[in-house]
Amino acid sequence: MNLTAVNAIYRFEMARWGRTLLQSIVAPVLSTSLYFIVFGAAIGSRVPEIDGVSYGAFIVPGLMMMLLLTESASNASFGIYLPRFTGTIYEILSAPISPFEIVLGYVGAAATKSIILGFIILVTASLFVPVRIAHPVWMLAFLVLTALSFSLLGFIIGVWADGFEKLQVIPMLIIMPLSFLGGTFYSINMLPPFWQNLALVNPMVYLISGFRWSFFEISDVSVGISLTMTLVFLLLCLTIVWWIFRTGYRLKP
């Protein structure tokens, strides 16, 4: 294991983030605050409690998840796309470093960033609504697993994309809507039966449900299933990344 090299990539990526730290943090904090003002305070006061949890608190895990998913994917995709775009990837590919180590550096950095952001959102949220966490360890486990899987997904997007627009396409057109519909703002039990069943094919439902359970012990689907689905997704992404390096897809002619 070439830890010096992994560390070099990790630090390099974190430093890149550090230079734009303010905008990386201000934007998500601002948008989450807006959600809390609109849905938590304004509309939330008129929404009845869901399974004994005030609406303002109910949306905290959902919002954190939504942010985690989009930020992980866009951070990681940008991280690997940039050197592909500028051509500096030659240095990574010609270094004495294994694919696993490359992924560890990039995905590790992207996941770290989004986990830090997740906590910032949590702190911001607790300024607006009282937040309690029933299972902090599970909460952390879901946070880390989700950040890792979606950073891997981002890595895949960054290898696949052949233009800056494509980097935005998947987070904007798929991840964001699916997490919106996956129960960020409501419990899928509130949907009519037909839509409830349809919602179960949305992978975000499982992530958000499990995460919310770690806060309030309420969930749309059982925690075991949530955890299984998260791990399945992680495995799927790992397989695709393995295939990318195996075939050299878009990295090596």
């Binding site: 090299a5 070099a8 990539i9 630090r11 390099f12 240095e91 990574i92 270094a95 004495p96």
Partner: peptide, 9 residues
């Protein structure tokens, strides 16, 4: 960075 990524301290 180049030195690091090649595994040298």
């Amino acid at each position: 960075f180049s030195r690091g990524i090649n595994g040298r301290k």
